[in-house]
Design a protein around this nucleic acid. Structure first.
Lengths: 242, 242
DNA sequence: TGAGTTGTTCTCAACTTGAGAGAGTGAGCG
DNA sequence: CGCTCACTCTCTCAAGTTGAGAACAACTCA
């Protein structure tokens, strides 16, 4: 039986219940380390363990909108600052036994945000926090969220190669060195400063100059750095090499 | 309200019904043109229009398994030939009004198959056929399937850059020229034969030699071509350039 | 047998990358 | 105040990759 037959001949509401949720792998960079937004679960299953922020898709709400709503609820973000966060669909996870209570298909999303304040505890009893990704082990994570996070991190690493999305981890104006720090943090290895500089400026539309420079030199000396903002390119040609 | 609260305090079965389907963008190459498996709908909505093969996720069935089942049902494929088809998740489509009857979230998949026989009409009244992608206009396509197909084609084009999946459009043994024809068909422009040859052989693990050659030269002359099979690489480093 | 096509290898210029060096700026310290 | 050192940014050069074309042998068809 295929979809067409089914929907023509049956009332879909009779079909075994499937719940659809959106989950968000929200990444940011704090103190030179990649951090992830997690919620400590207050109730079983997996009580006391960390889970991705997420929830049911609301009626009338598109998947991406649901993910952005979940992100807003857990970070307290809104307006322009919420709009600047990059959000893309990561993939759907629907193994039959991934939630012990019922069939749940989760549409995971991936978000890149600049360094954000710690989430304020809202009405939820659950605790939300930015945790360094290096501190995570699958055992502490609820459901299949360890696998989702691993997929999200790999997606993030490869997206930095061929898109300018690294800029989404930074303030609207940034230096080339700050941009390089994003790459080094996400990719996990140092890059050659001179070559990185040359490459970023040579890829069309990656960054554009603001004409301004930082107010001060680096913390331990050095000249003031030129400030750039994100350019208009949505893809980097040619791509950076990891 | 988040997922945790919700599932702890409510019976999810009370939640507004959402149906989850899997759809498959199945691509193959026939006579030098990219073709797509489509089903002509017999019943409203969109009766008479073309739709992607797909259907409801069955209880106990993972998303990828559902997609492979749908592919098997519509192509009549099974066993080793089904297993050789590449299948990956493309993305989920859940706009609230994408199906006029109820909320349907569709998890779209992308398949690459070698040239397959025309689908045999099975018990379904619906007609299944491989159609050239150039012949499609959104108006003839049901639901949001035009957008899903467009996303699938773009995914296919980019996957050929950095994976060896082009080999999945071919028989287990193939010539470099046949492989180049896959790239030219999917990317839509001719490639330099000599440079393509050099590149394919220089990327580690892309192809491995069988030692054998074709029985005959080309249809209009030329030497016998060496035969290769897919190598062990799952990613191409460095990637091909479109 | 001859004409034309094709698979494969080669050549060479243009471009890109990786590694290192160095000029010049500015913070912090004694 | 002036020294030191970290830092930004530019430059150089060798090694590698790409794009375009040519060469040539193997082959089919007429």
């Amino acid at each position: 039986m295929n979809e067409q037959d089914f929907l023509a001949g049956y009332d879909p509401r009779d079909y075994p219940a499937v719940a659809v949720t959106v989950d968000v792998v929200a990444l940011t960079i704090r103190e030179g380390a990649l951090h992830l937004l997690l919620i400590r679960r207050g109730a079983p299953p997996y009580a006391g363990q960390w889970a991705l922020p997420g929830g049911f898709v609301q009626p009338g709400e598109d998947l991406g909108a649901g993910a952005r709503r979940e992100l807003a609820e857990e970070t307290g973000l809104g307006g322009e600052r919420l709009r600047r966060v990059h959000l893309e669909q990561l993939g759907s996870y629907g193994a039959p036994d991934r939630d012990p209570r019922m069939r749940v298909v989760s549409v995971a999303h991936l978000a890149f945000a600049p360094d954000l304040p710690d989430p304020v505890a809202d009405t939820d009893a659950d605790e939300a926090a930015w945790l360094p990704v290096t501190a995570l082990t699958s055992r502490q994570l609820a459901f299949d969220h360890g696998a989702i996070i691993a997929d999200g991190l790999e997606r993030a690493r490869s997206k930095l190669e061929y898109t300018p999305l690294a800029t989404r981890f930074l303030a609207p104006e940034f230096t080339i060195t700050e941009l390089r720090a994003v790459y080094e943090t996400v990719w996990g290895h140092p890059l050659h400063a001179g070559n990185f500089h040359r490459k970023v400026l040579s890829v069309p539309g990656f960054v554009e100059s603001t004409g301004a420079s930082t107010e001060r030199g680096g913390a331990r000396g050095g000249p003031r750095a030129k400030l750039y903002r994100a350019g208009s390119a949505r893809l980097l040609h040619p791509a950076l090499l990891r």
